[in-house]
Design a protein around this nucleic acid. Structure first.
Lengths: 324, 324
DNA sequence: CTGTTAGCGCGTTCAC
DNA sequence: GTGAACGCGCTAACAG
């Protein structure tokens, strides 16, 4: 930067301004500086800038995984909004390991990210303490609570589970099954379903809890376990679409008719849910919008705007298709 | 850090060492420092560390998108290997926009990433110049070339396309179709297919080039266009599994038998490819391994080890399933 | 609109 | 095994 300044015959601070707020520099000066930048091949060191300004223009995001497209869409939405505003995304994946979130948060805070996005509302006390101490904007996502750490963008997994349960019950199914991974949000969906079932005399629900981080194969195996029961469920709600589609495919192979012999529903409404045959009943939750909105909230706070309300319930929508 | 040093009765540099190389600090001193860190809630500022040491422990990765799980797996593999080594991942998505890569590279270099991972081997001259000037380790992925910018982990899209073409031809199909997005690697796959077709007298191939960033829906539409022809292809190769599965589903809906009336093949071997009915013939390319290996190469270079060879051809494998 | 001064919070290099 | 001085490259705050 010193070279650039010398070449342009100005001081370093003017170069700095020419880069960050070109409008505040005289056009002639600006032109000379730009020429000098080009000649020297100067690349501003944003690390030094971050240190000096104590703003990194980096946002940290922690998700369980991006393989499973439900979070991939969220990350994509976030990343597009952030990039458009000149921010970068530091991505961390926990693979559903309990301790991974805290160490990622710690690492991100060490990098002085300007904001953080977390998945879910369950965090270790240490994590919460760290985030509060850092005093940066934080957005929790994919769930709902009255007391977020700071801001929140999501929907009620419990209500969504209940709504899907009511849909199944309304369709006349009474013996229900639930299959989900061992993680917080999946459990909330089950709790909702169970509550809906409790409201209807004679309705029952059987639950299979799998390890977290499930995929197609697990759905296939789970539906088999149900089908082998003397009295299998009539309808099965899977904690995510991948599980449900695995189950759907297994039914197709075995000649189990969906929904006549076994109704199947998923969760999240991946692109593929509408494409399979029969098309999958699921709950649409706006994965992409969650990411976009989270990013927008952060940007608002970065720009000093007050965010109200701090809780954004984006809701959900039961999408009834042919599989139920 | 000054507070910590004072509390522990040592100098700042000793605190610094206690954090980075605890082995080089006397156990008693170390214990006092750790206690002081806990009492003060001190969080080392890695930005300052980066500036002083000119090593950021950040790797930048540019992918077209992570929605499409083929790159999601690569990113996941990368991120796991990097996180285990104490590195963080800065993620950028181009959404297949031509100019997006260069601006992301520019931004990442400005942050002084220690290394970069790019998707593909086609980059603007400006991008290549920047990367060379930065003199950091760079890994290109998902394709093959004799002259990578620095290092490369991938496979030959052309050969993979040709291999799948030979598979279709060996199965007796002569009128082939190809559907792919308008992007470099998809075009290479087509080129390979076309070459395989040229080797067999009487074999033909019809091509549909879609916009880049395709999904299930596009596959569905594309197969319809083929089916409406007076003489549709007998077998259709799709540039990625999502397209192929969309087509598969459309065939199921229309009562078009796969593979008897229309054979279908995809590319990348997503988890779901093995699960659909009929199971999808595709080309396995080790998306996850590409990411892991790219990360390992970078780590090797960060640690000063020489990497040879700099080109890692991970190969591919035609996975013949029921859909062809 | 432009410049000056004074750090940002560490790690490097040497010395002890 | 520990410390002092210096600088990494930039920007905030103020002055002009």
């Amino acid at each position: 930067m010193e070279d650039v300044a010398r070449l342009a015959g100005v001081s370093m601070i003017t170069v700095s301004r020419a880069i960050r707020e070109p409008a505040k520099v005289a056009p002639a000066t600006l032109a000379r500086i730009e020429a000098a930048i080009r000649r020297t091949g100067y690349v501003p060191n944003l690390t030094a800038g971050s240190l000096a300004s104590s703003r990194s223009r980096i946002v940290g995001a922690v998700v369980p995984t991006i393989d499973n497209s439900i979070f991939a869409e969220t990350v994509r939405g976030m990343s597009e909004v952030l990039e458009a505003a000149g921010y970068q995304l530091l991505l961390g994946q926990t693979a559903y390991r309990a301790d991974a979130e805290d160490s990622l948060v710690q690492a991100f805070l060490g990098r002085r990210v300007d904001g953080m996005v977390l998945t879910g509302i369950g965090h270790s006390p240490a994590t919460v303490r760290r985030l509060r101490a850092a005093a940066i904007p934080v957005v929790e996502t994919w769930d709902l609570t009255a007391r977020p750490i700071d801001m929140l963008v999501g929907f009620s997994n419990r209500d969504a589970g209940a709504a899907l349960g009511r849909h199944l019950l309304a369709r006349g199914y009474r013996r229900l099954g639930f299959v989900g991974g061992a993680e917080e949000r999946g459990r909330s969906r089950y709790a909702g379903l169970a509550a809906a079932v409790a409201d209807v005399p004679g309705a029952t629900v059987l639950r299979q809890e799998l390890a977290a981080g499930t995929s197609y194969k697990d759905g296939r195996a789970a539906i088999l376990r149900f089908l082998e029961l003397p009295e299998p469920p009539q309808a099965c709600f899977f904690g995510n679409d991948a599980l449900a589609i695995g189950a759907l495919m297994e039914c197709a192979r075995r000649g189990v008719r969906v929904p006549q012999d076994m109704a199947i529903a998923g969760f999240a409404d991946l692109d593929i849910a509408a494409e399979v045959t029969p098309a999958l009943t699921t709950v649409h939750v706006g994965s992409r919008q969650i990411g976009e909105e989270a990013a927008r909230l952060l940007l608002a706070r970065f720009e000093g705007r007050r965010v109200a309300p701090r809780i954004r319930d984006l809701g959900f929508r039961v999408v009834a298709r042919a599989s139920t």
